[in-house]
Computed example of a mutant assay.
Amino acid sequence: MYPLEQRELVAEAAGLRMQILTLAAGQEVPWHWHSEVTDTFWCMEGPMVIETRAPNSVTVLQPGQMHAVPPHTAHRVTGQDGGRARFAILQGVGTYDFKPVGG
């Protein structure tokens, strides 16, 4: 797994997981994709940046904003300009996996 300032598991059930992740300055959720689950992000402290490939996009979320990344879409998450970010992430519905991109 990748380093985070904090990872808080809020709830987990078959096919569904809710966490709160905190990225320290300079940390990231590295490029990856999921076979089944959609990642739905709610920014709590930010701003935070969600980048995707195929389609290529950059979404900046301010606190209170949300954005969903569907299955089979490569994405990574950072704080804007390498800053700190804290966000809730709902992952589902389906079996969770983490497929790294590149290497």
Rank of each mutant, 00 (worst) to 15 (best):
Q91I: 05
S57T: 08
K99Q: 15
G79V: 12
P63C: 10
P3C: 12
H75A: 06
D81M: 05
G92N: 11
D39N: 13
L4W: 05
A68M: 08
G83V: 02
M44S: 00
S57Q: 08
A14C: 00
E12F: 02
T78P: 04
T22H: 07
M48N: 08
Y2P: 02
E45V: 07
T22Q: 10
I50D: 10
T22L: 09
G82S: 11
H34P: 07
R76Y: 01
Y96M: 11
E8N: 04
D39L: 11
A25R: 14
E8F: 00
A14Y: 00
V49H: 05
T22E: 14
A13C: 09
E36L: 08
K99A: 12
T78E: 03
D97S: 01
M66I: 02
H72V: 05
G102Q: 02
V60G: 11
L9N: 11
R17N: 11
V101I: 11
N56P: 08
A74V: 02
A68T: 07
F87Y: 13
L16A: 06
V49K: 02
P47S: 07
E51I: 07
V37R: 02
T22C: 12
Y2V: 03
V60T: 15
Q91F: 01
L23H: 07
V93I: 12
A11Y: 06
T38G: 06
L16K: 03
H34Q: 13
A24G: 14
W42Y: 15
Q27D: 01
I20A: 06
M44L: 13
G64M: 09
G94T: 12
A24C: 03
P3L: 14
P71R: 15
V77L: 13
R53P: 01
T78R: 09
P71V: 13
M48F: 07
M48H: 09
